[in-house]
Design a protein around this nucleic acid. Structure first.
Lengths: 155, 155
DNA sequence: AAACGAGACGTTATAACATAACAAGTGTGC
DNA sequence: GCACACTTGTTATGTTATAACGTCTCGTTT
């Protein structure tokens, strides 16, 4: 099992393997080699990666990729719930639990730049209540908290 | 008084005037003409403005401004709580209640692009609880919900 | 008054992020 | 075969953001 705390050390390799297997289960043949590789790049990174970071890594592996290649793969992963875009960072992280991930929230450490994914408040939070009162129909919510993780604070 | 519902029509002129007065109270002489003008541009717009939108408007008024001029003014306003950056849109909105604005959340209509500001969940929400459990110290939270406002849904 | 420092603004250049548009390859079903 | 949906390759460009340095003003120090 993965640690519930993404700031903790945990078994990265197992984590990646499981996430990739889930991705294949979700996408079947649509998880093409490029998309799979990009997902794995996100999984092996402990920090959020920008599209150009992904691009560089692809190029370092011999791909002569241009920006749209990275953006398309990332867009696909996000659309299929396999990755998340962190608006605050203009960057992307893999989703470690694509099956049971709904309305995630993120904790972004400004020191080590790691991003933890947590479950967000449900439909019953204050925001949802406010929205309902205004007749506003929420379709998607971005929740990103910046701060400092326990590891960085103590050091 | 301003309407509690930013999607409602309300007395823009009074709203702007009050917000500007509050801004002056908060910043005193540091609210320079450029900053004041940028704030007013945000106040008179019903949608979030990008930095380059602001820039265009300044230029249209005869200013020969370059991008840093807009970014500096916007950064100042955000730093002083007079405006908010909407990450999702890479754009800015004026704060209508700079005095009592803390941890705001935003409702963004994808149809009319208007942005409503609401109070976010406090320190006692699920996110704060999760963060505390992880030893993560939240310094700032971005909450942005996209959806469709009542006006746009009915039409 | 001269010297200094802080803050705001002007200006040039460039970095960083993102997408439009079109060509070309691949596989499926008709 | 051919129409189609989908993926990828490629060129070019659009959009957002900041680094770096100069200058001006004003208030304070000497």
């Amino acid at each position: 099992m993965s640690s519930p705390d993404p700031f903790d050390r945990h078994d990265h390799a197992a984590c990646r393997k499981r996430a990739l297997a889930q991705a294949e289960a979700i996408c079947a043949e649509r998880l093409t080699p490029i998309r799979r590789r990009v997902l794995d790049l996100l999984l092996e990174s402990h920090v959020a990666l920008g599209a150009y970071d992904v691009l560089q890594r692809l190029q370092a592996e011999g791909h002569r990729a241009q920006p749209p290649v990275a953006y398309r793969a990332l867009d696909f992963l996000v659309a299929n719930g396999l990755a998340h875009r962190i608006e605050r960072l203009n960057a992307f992280v893999a989703c470690h639990r694509p099956e049971k991930c709904e309305a995630p929230a993120f904790l972004i450490c400004r020191e080590c730049n790691r991003v933890a994914e947590t479950a967000s408040a449900s439909r019953r939070g204050a925001l949802a209540r406010d929205a309902r009162a205004l007749g506003f129909e929420i379709e998607q919510t971005v929740i990103e908290a910046q701060g400092i993780c326990s590891g960085c604070r103590t050091s």
